[in-house]
Design a protein around this nucleic acid. Structure first.
Lengths: 228, 228
DNA sequence: CGTTATTTGCGAACACCGTTCTCGAAGTCG
DNA sequence: CGACTTCGAGAACGGTGTTCGCAAATAACG
């Protein structure tokens, strides 16, 4: 019923400039302010009013650059994706994919708000498409079907974000809640396998970076293994 | 600095009953109301006021059952996890894990708000621990280290949620935005691999259920493959 | 049966939020 | 110079999570 206009994504909604009063700021400036705010105080602090205040303007002004808060989040996520430094493909594909993952994790640890956006709002902006192009280039010689390559890209991003989110949560107090209940459940009995796995010494747990790369390389190896 | 009390998870914050005015509702009732609301109108509709209205009370009353909206979300997620019907372990582990994943996907499609919670708030409540126990039982005979089994559980949940989220997004209009920009980027040139992969016929794409199980079994096979 | 202790219900209020309306200001174009 | 177009942003609307304070309801005690 409700007309449902095509509704282009932010990056396709260009502003026809040249006539009328010129804008005092740019979309990039607004995005940068939002990113800075999120870096310092978390995603919840990214409020139209607070972003505007950081730019020295009123909240209503932001709607000249963005159709709403959601646009701003999309712009932030793609801006973060600009942080990848993608070398020319060289060597086996798994090496290239792991390098992408390594950078992705680093970016997410630097921007703690990113994992949530990547997980719940998997939108591709200009930099996201560049990243996809890079991954597909790495896999150009791989015999897997097109659909599976797209899946590998999605899994790469998703697992990286989930891992980073966990890592960040471990730093903050978020982890303790979960651990507290798990410990209680184990102590209360009735979950022998959980008790066994948690009770056994976790000997010399590897550093996060190593665990991450080991895990992801296993996942990608399975996903991109030759048919049967 | 700020004292940082232990802050127990919801499930450990029991109410000592017996004395004083008895509560007119239960935590389970509040949770059920929130779930019903989310099923019908999405997570954003789960508002303290609206949940309360559904119970015929005032918003402030909910704080007798829950310390805040976050508690409510945790309760909802665990309540949804009660929907698993876990058969006694039997047969190869991969079969059991796939059955868990199959049910997980079904639950998430029935509760479209679940994937977001699972992805961004991976908290284990009573039913979550039961699920973990089941998965670890399936893997009891597997030679992998304890840490890797825990990782397999996390990956299973994460990938299932991400897949379900995608599937749900495809139904709604969310998908079109992303597709619109991708198409533009391809048309503008400069991304030959993306163009090739998207341009190639996606012939007879399998049904979502099959694609999901194929993908997940590949991932799990890689993750739980014997060392080297 | 009071009386007291304890707990619940919840209206009112607070600080904030995203978004829209409106209109004056600031430019470009003919 | 108008005419036109775009921008800036204060004010306002309807909504949010959460806190406060107090009346009401019950249990336990004497």
């Amino acid at each position: 019923m409700d007309a449902a206009e095509p509704v282009l994504p932010v990056w396709l909604r260009e502003r026809r400039a040249g006539v009328g009063r010129p804008a005092e700021r740019s979309r990039a400036e607004v995005t940068a302010a939002a990113v800075a705010l999120a870096d310092g105080e978390g995603l919840a602090a990214v409020t139209m009013r607070r972003v505007a205040a950081r730019l020295g303007t009123g909240a209503a002004s932001l709607y000249r650059y963005v159709t709403g808060r959601d646009d701003l989040l999309d712009l932030m996520a793609d801006e973060a994706a600009a942080g990848y430094d993608l070398p020319a493909p060289d060597g086996p594909w798994v090496t290239g994919l792991l390098e992408v993952a390594r950078q992705g994790r680093a970016i997410m640890l630097r921007h703690p708000w990113l994992p949530e956006l990547v997980l719940t709002r998997p939108t591709l902006g200009p930099h996201g498409v560049d990243l996809l192009e890079h991954v597909l280039t790495l896999l150009a010689g791989h015999p897997a079907a097109a659909a599976r390559k797209m899946e590998a890209f999605a899994v790469l991003n998703t697992v990286t974000a989930a891992f980073a989110l966990n890592e960040l949560g471990a730093t903050a107090g978020t982890r303790q809640r979960q651990g507290a209940y798990l410990a209680h459940a184990v102590a209360a009995g009735g979950h022998p396998q959980v008790a066994a796995v948690l009770g056994g010494a976790f000997p010399a747990t590897a550093a996060p970076a190593e665990r991450f790369e080991e895990t992801l390389s296993r996942i990608l190896a399975g996903l991109l293994a030759p048919d049967d």
